[in-house]
Design a protein around this nucleic acid. Structure first.
Lengths: 204, 204
DNA sequence: ATCGTAGGTATATACCGTACGCCTACGAGG
DNA sequence: CCTCGTAGGCGTACGGTATATACCTACGAT
């Protein structure tokens, strides 16, 4: 065989992630990734078919790094909380990737492995059939939404500006809540919401 | 004053939404919106500063259309369920807009009005202070995540393909769950998950 | 040493957002 | 009624994007 491959897809993913972490998601382009790798833009197309595929690789790199071995010797709720927390931490380490995780989540085997682990714990908790399906999807929904809310919320404080500038009298509850919200940390908020979901999931 | 404005921002938003609904989100461009309105691309910049602003207008158009008047004469859980359902329906009517709602959610007064209404119901339910903050954010997280899971999941069945093709023996729970999942309708799944969140939110 | 495969690059196309400059339609003041 | 200034709308141009195509070339097996 002629000329061995000089690049792996992981290297491409790592280069793309480096670009995103450094310059933001908008800076991700085939040219930028190629430059990061010291190659021509078109050279990438020997390894990926598409820009979309590069994005998928980045998501896989980020989401695949989650440790899905459940912590032993604790209650099922604590174990799920740990797995959820690890997912959150991994995404939180690369905030700019958040929008990508959404678009490419469904093709990630990392998410699949994570879901499999969570399903195992839910099964131990006594859930089965449709209840278990709904519980997993509910959990996934919460995590996806919460992570996005956390990282895409106050982008440059624009959200707060809208609240502050727009007739506080018309939004009395929001105004009051905003005061409380400042005192609630991100962790407390995230794990508090998670506790709500876990509490409602089954009786035991 | 010379020459009255011939366009409102709502017309631009409607045109952009029409493009998105017809040709998908990727087809959204200043040129496409302008063509939809029968104008030159640059004419839009008399009314909008930016492509981002157009996107914001679309989100506002979609999210602002949600009726936030709580249905009378029912329990607080039912009322929240109704408001959440209306939000889901509105977004569900324009699935291609989902990724935009995420990016521009924080600047939407529609979301603000919706949150205000939900907060009112939560207050009646006896929630206050940090609990209420966490409950609202938990609810928002669930809705955001669930809507995305619903509309961005099996994009052209790619997700299912991954599950099916990838060693069912390594993912026994996922394989089994997939069977159950096919029998659970989207509505059942969505409102089932919502019920979990509402159940865990407070005791009464 | 040679040859075919496949890596890498250079070029070209089509599209994008948008800065700039021009023409012109229009409403108010004389 | 006529004129004038403002601001609407458009044409062009620039720099960016993804990617198709065609080419040269480095390499490993023969």
């Amino acid at each position: 065989m002629p000329r061995p491959r000089s690049l792996t897809q992981d290297q491409i993913a790592a280069a793309a992630l480096a670009v995103i972490d450094r310059d933001g998601l908008a800076a991700l382009s085939m040219r930028a990734v190629a430059t990061e790798l010291g190659m021509s833009a078109m050279a990438l197309y020997r390894y990926v078919g598409d820009r979309q595929e590069v994005e998928g690789l980045v998501v896989e790199l980020v989401l695949g790094g989650v440790d899905v071995s459940p912590p032993p010797g604790t209650s099922w709720r604590e174990r799920v909380t740990t797995l959820v927390g690890r997912l959150r931490d991994q995404v939180g380490a690369h905030p700019h990737v958040v929008p990508l995780t959404m678009t490419h989540r469904h093709r990630s085997v990392g998410v699949l492995r994570w879901s499999e682990a969570v399903l195992g714990i839910l099964t131990e908790a006594g859930l089965a059939g449709a209840d278990r399906v709904i519980a997993l999807r509910g959990l996934l929904s919460y995590v996806i939404g919460a992570v996005q809310l956390e990282h895409l919320g106050p982008l440059s404080g624009a959200g707060t500006t809208v609240i502050a500038g727009l007739a506080p009298a018309d939004f009395p509850y929001m105004a009051e809540t905003a005061g409380h919200a400042r005192l609630v940390g991100a962790d407390e908020e995230f794990y508090g919401g998670l506790a709500i979901v876990l509490r409602g999931m089954c009786d035991t």
